[in-house]
Write a protein that binds this DNA or RNA. Sequence first.
DNA 1: GATAAAATCAGCATTTTCCCGAAGCGGGGT
DNA 2: ACCCCGCTTCGGGAAAATGCTGATTTTATC
Lengths: 215, 215
Amino acid sequence: MDETVGIVAREAGKSFGQQIFIVDDDDAQRDSLVWLLESHGHVVRAFSGARDFLAVWNGNPAGCLLLDVRMPGMSGPELFEELTRRCSALPVIFITGHGDVAMAVTALKKGAADFIEKPFSSDEVLKIVNHCLTRESEERAHRCARADTARRLGQLTRRERQVLDLIIAGKLNKQIAGDLDISIKTVEVHRARVMEKMGVSSLASLIRRIVSARL
Amino acid sequence: MDETVGIVAREAGKSFGQQIFIVDDDDAQRDSLVWLLESHGHVVRAFSGARDFLAVWNGNPAGCLLLDVRMPGMSGPELFEELTRRCSALPVIFITGHGDVAMAVTALKKGAADFIEKPFSSDEVLKIVNHCLTRESEERAHRCARADTARRLGQLTRRERQVLDLIIAGKLNKQIAGDLDISIKTVEVHRARVMEKMGVSSLASLIRRIVSARL
DNA sequence: GATAAAATCAGCATTTTCCCGAAGCGGGGT
DNA sequence: ACCCCGCTTCGGGAAAATGCTGATTTTATC
């Protein structure tokens, strides 16, 4: 059965490794969601409280989080705040039983992926979760690319970084040499090393990397 | 008094030309909003119905729209849909009297700027409107830049466009010549014309323009 | 068919970039 | 003190790009 789940997940086109976390104090509701999602090939991990989830949460898992709003102890919005504070990129789908427009608006404006009311249909949840996972997968790719760019930027020396900035600014080696008060030859060396360290072979790729990483 | 309004608006640091549109069938509510916003130096234009607003709306004014949800004839969400269909970039702030989480979530996910419930405080509205205008101003700058880039891209010939694509891909003139099966000299001509038409003088600027415009 | 616009190519001088090599300099470790 | 390594600094020659003048062919448009 476990194997089947994996196969189904792959057949559904989901990137392997994505898990759906559920945090809800209502046992029936939680089990219902677990059953629904697992029967559709998702890997699910359910928790009855925010603390339990935080204890397991190891930084930045792939997937999304179905989060109940009203819970004893730490509430849904509080957990969401905490995740935001910890720079989590895990998409959060709020689930609430008591319609509260202000809370929904606040949550969404703070970056929640969605906000659904009970009762909800199976199709609704599945659709939202799938959409969320798809987006998360893309987002993840972007984050990885950005992280890689940041890492590479980090291993540039001061001089190389200065040269890079001027390259991005569109200056010629001659102008860069003038600005930094060094010879053109030296600029060329730094430039070559920048290209090497950034893992690109053309100026176009270099600019693309830097500009893309800024957004 | 009109002059004072203008001065106040400038002193408040708002980009000139921004107007706040209000569409609400409730006369008292509408007048109240008009008074509140005008007394804070905003230029306001109020309408009692969606049709009236659409008749005046000329494509893409600067500012934002305070839109009541429930109205006879065309409703708030319907007007919002229509604006979206017409590729409007005018930020929409929904105002509702009857809390409806699903509607709020839908509206926000479709790109509404905010969704506030009656009754609301003056401070709340002012804060939201100001935030909205600030964002809109920045967005506008980006849109202008993008529009300019698109316009320039539009006046490139087919060949120039092909060459541009290969330049962006980071290829050398020699490689471009090979790909398009033309001589290097010709590539150089196209390349120069691309730079000229795109209004840039360095490869870095060119790449930045293109990449920025894609987002 | 005339006219204009686009696409094609060449030569030549200049500038810029790329690749290989090399040397001074300063900190860390043995 | 000595050596190694990374950072920074250069030079020379090859390759590539740029700017300019000029030209022919193809295509679009009226």
